[in-house]
Design a protein around this nucleic acid. Sequence first.
DNA 1: TAGATTGTTAATCGATTAACAATC
DNA 2: TAGATTGTTAATCGATTAACAATC
Lengths: 209, 209
Amino acid sequence: MEKVPRPVIRRLAVYLRCLSNLEEKGVQIVSSKQLASMLQIKDSQVRKDLSYFGNLGQRGSGYDVKKLSQKLREVLGLYKTWSVIILGAGNIGKALANHKRLEQNNFKIVAVFDSDRRKIGRQIAPGLKVRDVAELEQFMKENGADIAVLAVPATVANELACRLEKVGIKGIVCFAPTTLHCKIPVEYVDITVFFKTLAHTIVNSSYNI
Amino acid sequence: MEKVPRPVIRRLAVYLRCLSNLEEKGVQIVSSKQLASMLQIKDSQVRKDLSYFGNLGQRGSGYDVKKLSQKLREVLGLYKTWSVIILGAGNIGKALANHKRLEQNNFKIVAVFDSDRRKIGRQIAPGLKVRDVAELEQFMKENGADIAVLAVPATVANELACRLEKVGIKGIVCFAPTTLHCKIPVEYVDITVFFKTLAHTIVNSSYNI
DNA sequence: TAGATTGTTAATCGATTAACAATC
DNA sequence: TAGATTGTTAATCGATTAACAATC
């Protein structure tokens, strides 16, 4: 298959969100124009994006919501449930452990780890009590997991990434404000970056008024 | 000034993070090569990015950490403190209210709102108790604020965005999984998108093994 | 058939990179 | 001066968009 640009993949994830909403509303057909207006992008971009994955629409009417939704799930690899472990039981770790939309999208949190004695043993979300990070290797041997979330201080992130790689984690979502030196795929999420870029946009748009 | 591409702005935010770390360590000079290796990008990209804002380096040695850091703060609009209100006192709202790196970067959380009677009045972070969202307009009239965070369900996000715009909020960081119809700048953060794109990367990298 | 919308192309626009003269 | 690193250019690479034939 032709190489798919990363911006396209990110948009697929958003298309999927819209399609799920439409499905719930009972909508059966959607046009590229409608999808485009939901994301505030051009309709030709929607069609171009989807065309990477075959002829998914019907000329004259549009795209079948259910069929497209299923196809995108397949492309993104969401046909299976991904088991996720969270490292760091602070506020971010806790928010993710309780984030219902993750499970709705087939990402199941199976364990939360921390090194803080005061947090270990505590119930952090329904059915999840905080484990000692020292038991990480043991847990992985017994249960395995696909994805790890790093919600720990930057100072310990790389050491943990290294351990995670060794025990067979396939990818990391990194909330720690640092770059990881590991070979498995990493998705970086630095919360402050969104605020900083927003600040820049605000400052530069008011110049033009 | 020449138009600066958005990807550059996002990287500036990350350069700034690295520079702050270097400053703490007492490092005074940094080269584009060093910065590049921290972000895992090309050194020519670092130089190109920084060149948008003048001659910030010293040929032969590199960039003065303090000077560059200050310049980037200026470019991003972080010379002033941005006052931030959070709408939604759920897990994400709470995580942000307690996120120390926001205040370290000059984003000060000044209020948290919710509509849930059980949450209103509760202490959600040091010095922050949850207010009734009905008092939003009143609060803004008395105190004002620059940026709002939407950490509410998608169903009510647009209605709130509209109210926020009316009371003079300058920009929104939107964690609600929806697109906002407002004229002020919005930065979207859909947590599940990071997981979905990571899943895609994993699925497509294992094909190649 | 007439109206609507896709899929695809080619043009345009935007971003990254290598290379190297300038210069500390 | 020799070594190092910037700032900048031009080439390349990548992404978006308008336009329209194909077709339901």
